[in-house]
Amino acid sequence: MAAQIRLVEITDANREAVVALRVHPAQEQFVASVEASFRHAAEQPEAKPWFRAVYDGDVPVGFVMLSWNLVPGPELRGPYFLWRLLIGAGFQGRGYGTAILDEVVSLIRADGATELITSYVPGEGSPLPFYLRYGFVPTGEIDADGEPILVLDLTGR
């Protein structure tokens, strides 16, 4: 069964619940916290951060952050870059990651995107197998942080 999700703006009313989401401790090296994501977004407004809480019904289960239609530059990949995809530890393995990407792809395609770019921290337990299953392919590039770059072609989906 496919997960049913909603992408919800983060407000004072839900911020605390969203910030409380945590990945499994073994995954912390691969994905920054929601709180760190807010800090990164504030520190890099030129990256045009767009973020949403992910809800299943009335329960926050995850967080997603993209660079939304930015002008790519030496340090900025885009125009659409998946910056953060986090599923709370107790909600993993239920199809939320795929459902989030399906929703994000739908939104950015409606905005004119032809590809979605992301990167990942390599290592045992990294999200690479998930991204490959979804259809991302390695570009062969490595970013300034040492993270391999992946791209999802949206023209044929």
Results as ranks from 00 to 15, higher is better:
residue 39 R to L: 04
residue 44 Q to I: 05
residue 26 A to D: 15
residue 18 V to I: 11
residue 15 R to F: 15
residue 32 A to R: 13
residue 35 E to N: 08
residue 44 Q to Y: 13
residue 38 F to G: 00
residue 39 R to Y: 08
residue 18 V to H: 07
residue 36 A to I: 09
residue 51 F to T: 04
residue 31 V to K: 12
residue 40 H to C: 11
residue 33 S to G: 05
residue 48 K to G: 09
residue 14 N to H: 13
residue 38 F to K: 00
residue 32 A to D: 15
residue 26 A to P: 09
residue 36 A to L: 05
residue 56 D to W: 04
residue 33 S to E: 11
residue 39 R to K: 04
residue 49 P to C: 09
residue 15 R to T: 09
residue 45 P to L: 01
residue 32 A to N: 12
residue 40 H to N: 12
residue 30 F to H: 10
residue 23 V to Y: 14
residue 45 P to G: 02
residue 54 V to R: 01
residue 38 F to Y: 06
residue 37 S to W: 11
residue 35 E to I: 12
residue 30 F to W: 11
residue 34 V to T: 04
residue 23 V to A: 12
residue 50 W to G: 00
residue 54 V to C: 00
residue 17 A to C: 02
residue 20 A to P: 00
residue 50 W to D: 00
residue 27 Q to V: 03
residue 33 S to T: 00
residue 53 A to V: 03
residue 30 F to M: 10
residue 25 P to A: 13
residue 46 E to K: 07
residue 43 E to Q: 07
residue 60 P to G: 14
residue 43 E to T: 11
residue 23 V to P: 05
residue 49 P to D: 06
residue 56 D to R: 02
residue 55 Y to D: 05
residue 26 A to H: 15
residue 19 V to Y: 01
residue 50 W to S: 03
residue 17 A to Q: 09
residue 48 K to W: 15
residue 41 A to K: 05
residue 57 G to M: 03
residue 27 Q to H: 13
residue 20 A to M: 07
residue 30 F to E: 08
residue 15 R to K: 15
residue 49 P to V: 02
residue 41 A to Y: 10
residue 32 A to C: 04
residue 55 Y to H: 11
residue 29 Q to N: 14
residue 47 A to S: 14
residue 54 V to T: 01
residue 21 L to M: 09
residue 30 F to K: 13
residue 40 H to D: 14
residue 34 V to A: 08
residue 60 P to Q: 14
residue 56 D to H: 06
residue 55 Y to R: 09
residue 30 F to R: 03
residue 54 V to F: 10
residue 35 E to D: 08
residue 28 E to P: 06
residue 20 A to I: 04
residue 24 H to T: 07
residue 17 A to M: 05
residue 59 V to I: 06
residue 59 V to T: 08
residue 16 E to V: 08
residue 27 Q to Y: 14
residue 30 F to G: 02
residue 54 V to N: 06
residue 39 R to D: 13
residue 29 Q to Y: 15
residue 31 V to H: 07
residue 27 Q to N: 02
residue 50 W to C: 02
residue 36 A to Y: 06
residue 45 P to T: 01
residue 52 R to T: 10
residue 17 A to R: 03
residue 55 Y to W: 13
residue 44 Q to F: 15
residue 47 A to Y: 15
residue 44 Q to G: 10
residue 61 V to E: 00
residue 51 F to R: 07
residue 51 F to N: 08
residue 28 E to S: 10
residue 55 Y to G: 01
residue 34 V to C: 07
residue 38 F to W: 07
residue 59 V to E: 11
residue 42 A to D: 13
residue 58 D to P: 09
residue 24 H to S: 14
residue 52 R to V: 03
residue 35 E to M: 05
residue 37 S to G: 03
residue 34 V to N: 08
residue 51 F to L: 04
residue 43 E to M: 09
residue 29 Q to R: 15
residue 15 R to S: 11
residue 61 V to N: 01
residue 29 Q to G: 13
residue 41 A to M: 02
residue 15 R to V: 13
residue 45 P to V: 00
residue 53 A to P: 01
